[in-house]
Simulated assay, not measured.
Amino acid sequence: MIIRSDEFIDIPRIASGTPSDDAMPSPGGVMRTHLFRPAVEGRYPGVLLFSEIYQVTDPIRRLAAYVAGHGFCVAVPEVYHEYEQPGTVLRYDAAGTDRGNALKVTKPVPAFDEDAVAALDGLAAHPACTGRLATMGVCLGGHLAYRAALDPRVAAAACFYATDIHSGTLGAGKQDDSLARMEELKAETLFIWGRQDLHVPFAARETIRARLEAVGANYGWLEVNGQHAFLRDEGPRYDPALFAQTLNAVIALFNRTLAG
């Protein structure tokens, strides 16, 4: 399906919490949210896609385009909008990694959550969206997609190698409540992991799965022989076969849960 990938909306935002001295908020006061949707005019189910720590990179744009090409209106917010100018992309290098990781534990968890609500509001109100909503994300974004799926409007979520859920170390103070809030998860959620992922090793995955079982969550679980970031189509860890396998599962989930 031919898509449009040249659009964005700037959602007004006010930063929550107090940033550190070396990470001053952007003066723009907006959360730039990139849109990907079928070129044929119409209304499509919405997918809120959260990026990794590098924001909306070329691999994230291609991932969003892939999902949109299956008949979805995909919105990708810039997760560090308080600290970086609109349109900023961090590079896949040491400096970009250090910056992304620093901001991950600078931004308060409530600010991540408020951004998710604002992005879901904006996506649901877009004329190309039916109002049926799902979330997905990779790495940091996998964690944010899970937290966004606690919103009762979200019917489904796909979380790729979500970092920090097991350790509770997201956000300022490194004391998130993601495991504790898992009983609130009503969306059908697919967790996807690489067995060779050093960021979320076996014991960490078992902690998450045990909690899902304890709360009776409606979830799917897919582990593959891949490393962290196996979905990113740049760099040595990319696995195109796993990209196809896992994205097919995600598209099937969204087709089933967002119909109607």
Rank of each mutant, 00 (worst) to 15 (best):
R37I: 07
A39C: 09
V40Y: 14
E41R: 05
E41D: 08
E41T: 01
G42E: 05
R43G: 08
R43D: 02
R43L: 11
Y44V: 03
Y44N: 06
P45Y: 06
V47H: 05
V47M: 06
L48W: 03
L49W: 03
L49D: 02
F50H: 06
F50L: 06
F50C: 04
Y54K: 07
Q55W: 00
T57M: 10
P59F: 03
R62I: 03
R62G: 01
R62Q: 10
R62S: 06
R62D: 05
L63E: 12
A64L: 07
V67K: 11
V67C: 12
A68M: 12
A68V: 09
H70L: 02
G71F: 08
F72S: 07
C73E: 09
C73Y: 06
V74Y: 09
V74Q: 07
V76L: 07
V79N: 13
Y80R: 02
H81G: 10
E82M: 14
E82W: 15
Y83G: 12
E84C: 13
Q85S: 12
Q85A: 14
Q85V: 07
P86T: 04
P86A: 01
P86N: 01
G87H: 04
V89D: 09
V89F: 08
L90Y: 09
R91Q: 13
R91T: 13
D93Y: 11
A94M: 13
G96M: 08
T97D: 14
R99V: 14
L103N: 03
V105R: 06
K107D: 06
P108G: 05
V109L: 04
V109W: 02
V109E: 04
P110E: 11
A111Y: 15
D113N: 15
D113T: 11
E114F: 10
D115I: 01
A116E: 04
A118M: 13
A119C: 14
A119Y: 12
G122P: 08
L123C: 08
L123E: 04
L123D: 03
A124V: 11
A125D: 12
H126L: 09
H126T: 08
A128D: 00
A128M: 00
C129F: 00
C129Y: 08
R132I: 02
A134V: 04
T135G: 00
M136W: 00
M136Y: 06
V138G: 00
C139K: 09
L140Y: 11
L140D: 01
G141F: 04
G141H: 01
G142M: 02
G142A: 02
H143G: 10
A148S: 09
A149R: 05
D151C: 13
D151L: 12
V154W: 03
A158F: 14
Y161T: 00
Y161H: 07
A162Y: 06
T163M: 12
T163V: 14
I165G: 04
H166K: 15
T169H: 15
L170D: 09
G171C: 07
G171D: 05
A172R: 13
K174Q: 15
Q175I: 07
Q175Y: 08
D176M: 04
D177E: 14
D177H: 14
S178Q: 02
R181A: 09
R181V: 01
R181W: 05
R181H: 11
M182S: 04
E183Q: 12
